[in-house]
Measured scan of single mutants.
Amino acid sequence: MDALKSAGRALIRSPSLAKQSWGGGGRHRKLPENWTDTRETLLEGMLFSLKYLGMTLVEQPKGEELSAAAIKRIVATAKASGKKLQKVTLKVSPRGIILTDNLTNQLIENVSIYRISYCTADKMHDKVFAYIAQSQHNQSLECHAFLCTKRKMAQAVTLTVAQAFKVAFEFWQVSKEEKEKRDKASQEGGDVLGARQDCTPPLKSLVATGNLLDLEETAKAPLSTVSANTTNMDEVPRPQALSGSSVVWELDDGLDEAFSRLAQSRTNPQVLDTGLTAQDMHYAQCLSPVDWDKPDSSGTEQDDLFSF
């Protein structure tokens, strides 16, 4: 819950932080000083300027060897085509990944977070970031790969997607708890209302004896509580940590079903599988986004697919 609360507080303090972009060759504004600060901008989305290598189908939802083989196929196909790589912007948030063309600003792909089953910074092609997700059109699994400016960037994108998945799962947990509370309150309110109706004398007997209905007592009954809980029953509950912020979080049926399955089948359902080692994760978390744009010590960066 700490990640969720800190993310909400950060967004309320400075929503404009989320509009910064990394990996864009110096076009961005001043960047936060450390990885923790940038992680807090996830709610509205972190932007990464990358190059799209392509996509291939895979048979399993996750796995280092599986993704490595898929990336190898994608890279080989991209090299064989001889075409310049498409420059894209990857927007990562707890909602998922939005992929747009840098030149036309046209939407290429919009992947809900619950469809993503794996992401990684490839070991062999260490400047490549990739994720595996279920197609929104059918049940097939797709591996999408992107060329980053350097290994640090690939690791940073991988960690960002993993963190977005974690925050999304926490949102789901909060929403589920809130819905259970509202359902319980609604049920209790309905029981109270039913009890009051059972003990209320029939209207005919009131008229016969000349008694008047006590409207004041009726007004004191917990009807307002019942209506408050039943009027918006169809509205999706939102985490309290975000009250007053500009973010509107809505959970669709697909996300609810997917996270429910994860909660039942996995020990740590909030953790998205990645190909990063503990050492890689520690190294990337210690980086400032400013470091992502620094040239690798191995030599001059080449803006070309064939540089790796």
Rank of each mutant, 00 (worst) to 15 (best):
residue 176 K to A: 09
residue 282 H to R: 11
residue 84 K to H: 15
residue 256 D to W: 04
residue 55 M to L: 10
residue 305 L to R: 09
residue 219 A to G: 15
residue 7 A to Q: 12
residue 175 S to E: 01
residue 152 K to W: 14
residue 229 N to M: 10
residue 89 T to L: 14
residue 264 Q to R: 01
residue 191 D to V: 09
residue 14 S to A: 08
residue 210 G to A: 10
residue 248 V to E: 06
residue 103 L to N: 08
residue 288 S to D: 03
residue 109 E to D: 13
residue 70 A to S: 01
residue 26 G to D: 12
residue 119 C to V: 02
residue 15 P to N: 07
residue 51 K to C: 01
residue 301 E to T: 05
residue 209 T to N: 09
residue 220 K to Y: 13
residue 142 E to A: 14
residue 305 L to K: 08
residue 177 E to P: 15
residue 129 F to I: 07
residue 73 R to Y: 08
residue 253 D to C: 05
residue 183 D to E: 15
residue 143 C to R: 00
residue 185 A to I: 13
residue 235 E to D: 07
residue 221 A to Y: 04
residue 73 R to M: 15
residue 138 N to S: 12
residue 212 L to F: 04
residue 23 G to C: 06
residue 261 R to H: 07
residue 224 S to M: 08
residue 296 D to W: 09
residue 97 I to R: 00
residue 22 W to H: 09
residue 8 G to A: 03
residue 289 P to Y: 07
residue 295 P to M: 06
residue 10 A to V: 15
residue 61 P to K: 02
residue 248 V to A: 05
residue 189 G to T: 04
residue 237 P to D: 10
residue 16 S to D: 10
residue 232 N to Q: 06
residue 37 D to P: 13
residue 279 Q to F: 02
residue 263 A to I: 06
residue 166 K to E: 14
residue 280 D to A: 10
residue 299 G to K: 11
residue 122 D to R: 00
residue 246 S to A: 07
residue 101 D to Q: 11
residue 232 N to T: 08
residue 46 M to R: 10
residue 43 L to A: 15
residue 171 F to H: 13
residue 46 M to C: 10
residue 203 L to D: 11
residue 248 V to G: 08
residue 213 L to T: 12
residue 165 F to M: 03
residue 261 R to V: 04
residue 56 T to M: 12
residue 213 L to G: 08
residue 140 S to I: 12
residue 79 K to M: 04
residue 236 V to H: 14
residue 174 V to N: 04
residue 251 L to W: 06
residue 107 L to D: 02
residue 262 L to C: 03
residue 282 H to P: 03
residue 172 W to I: 02
residue 188 E to P: 03
residue 60 Q to L: 12
residue 31 L to D: 14
residue 194 G to P: 04
residue 278 A to K: 09
residue 258 A to D: 01
residue 202 P to L: 08
residue 211 N to M: 07
residue 64 E to P: 13
residue 48 F to Y: 08
residue 228 A to W: 02
residue 39 R to I: 03
residue 235 E to H: 02
residue 53 L to C: 00
residue 114 Y to D: 02
residue 71 I to D: 00
residue 223 L to H: 03
residue 246 S to I: 11
residue 66 L to W: 01
residue 46 M to L: 07
residue 244 G to Q: 02
residue 10 A to C: 12
residue 211 N to L: 04
residue 9 R to Y: 09
residue 76 A to R: 13
residue 270 Q to T: 04
residue 203 L to S: 06
residue 33 E to P: 14
residue 266 R to G: 12
residue 42 L to E: 09
residue 262 L to I: 10
residue 128 V to W: 00
residue 18 A to W: 11
residue 259 F to P: 05
residue 16 S to F: 01
residue 207 V to I: 12
residue 194 G to Y: 06
residue 208 A to N: 07
residue 136 Q to F: 14
residue 271 V to M: 08
residue 213 L to I: 05
residue 57 L to R: 15
residue 195 A to T: 13
residue 13 R to I: 14
residue 10 A to G: 14
residue 3 A to M: 12
residue 107 L to G: 00
residue 305 L to S: 08
residue 300 T to F: 02
residue 5 K to C: 07
residue 59 E to C: 12
residue 143 C to E: 09
residue 12 I to T: 12
residue 224 S to Y: 10
residue 274 T to Y: 05
residue 289 P to L: 12
residue 240 Q to Y: 12
residue 254 G to F: 07
residue 58 V to H: 00
residue 301 E to K: 12
residue 293 D to Q: 10
residue 134 Q to W: 07
residue 181 K to W: 11
residue 117 S to C: 01
residue 74 I to P: 01
residue 285 Q to H: 15
residue 195 A to M: 05
residue 134 Q to V: 15
residue 106 Q to D: 01
residue 187 Q to I: 02
residue 149 T to P: 15
residue 283 Y to S: 11
residue 43 L to F: 10
residue 151 R to N: 07
residue 260 S to N: 11
residue 17 L to T: 12
residue 260 S to L: 10
residue 112 S to R: 07
residue 201 P to Q: 15
residue 259 F to G: 03
residue 122 D to G: 01
residue 304 D to M: 09
residue 264 Q to M: 13
residue 140 S to A: 10
residue 273 D to G: 04
residue 153 M to N: 14
residue 56 T to Y: 04
residue 47 L to V: 11
residue 245 S to V: 03
residue 204 K to C: 02
residue 151 R to P: 07
residue 125 H to I: 00
residue 244 G to P: 06
residue 280 D to C: 06
residue 136 Q to T: 13
residue 203 L to P: 08
residue 24 G to L: 08
residue 203 L to G: 06
residue 263 A to W: 05
residue 214 D to G: 14
residue 124 M to L: 07
residue 20 Q to G: 13
residue 42 L to D: 02
residue 232 N to D: 09
residue 77 T to M: 03
residue 236 V to Q: 14
residue 78 A to N: 00
residue 16 S to R: 07
residue 142 E to I: 10
residue 141 L to E: 03
residue 229 N to V: 04
residue 43 L to N: 15
residue 16 S to A: 08
residue 175 S to H: 12
residue 141 L to A: 13
residue 97 I to Q: 00
residue 119 C to F: 01
residue 25 G to Q: 12
residue 168 A to C: 09
residue 75 V to H: 00
residue 256 D to M: 04
residue 191 D to R: 09
residue 58 V to W: 02
residue 191 D to W: 11
residue 138 N to P: 09
residue 94 P to L: 03
residue 260 S to G: 10
residue 218 T to R: 06
residue 290 V to S: 07
residue 130 A to G: 14
residue 241 A to K: 07
residue 30 K to R: 15
residue 290 V to C: 07
residue 189 G to L: 01
residue 112 S to I: 12
residue 29 R to M: 09
residue 66 L to Q: 15
residue 298 S to G: 12
residue 121 A to E: 13
residue 62 K to G: 03
residue 201 P to R: 05
residue 59 E to S: 15
residue 266 R to N: 07
residue 155 Q to L: 04
residue 191 D to E: 08
residue 269 P to C: 02
residue 236 V to W: 09
residue 257 E to M: 09
residue 99 L to S: 15
residue 169 F to P: 03
residue 8 G to C: 01
residue 244 G to F: 07
residue 131 Y to A: 01
residue 76 A to W: 02
residue 170 E to L: 05
residue 202 P to V: 05
residue 307 S to L: 04
residue 255 L to P: 03
residue 171 F to D: 15
residue 155 Q to P: 00
residue 143 C to I: 06
residue 295 P to F: 07
residue 188 E to V: 02
residue 12 I to A: 12
residue 116 I to C: 14
residue 181 K to R: 15
residue 98 I to H: 05
residue 48 F to L: 01
residue 107 L to V: 11
residue 201 P to K: 13
residue 55 M to N: 04
residue 139 Q to A: 15
residue 73 R to L: 03
residue 296 D to T: 08
residue 126 D to K: 00
residue 207 V to M: 07
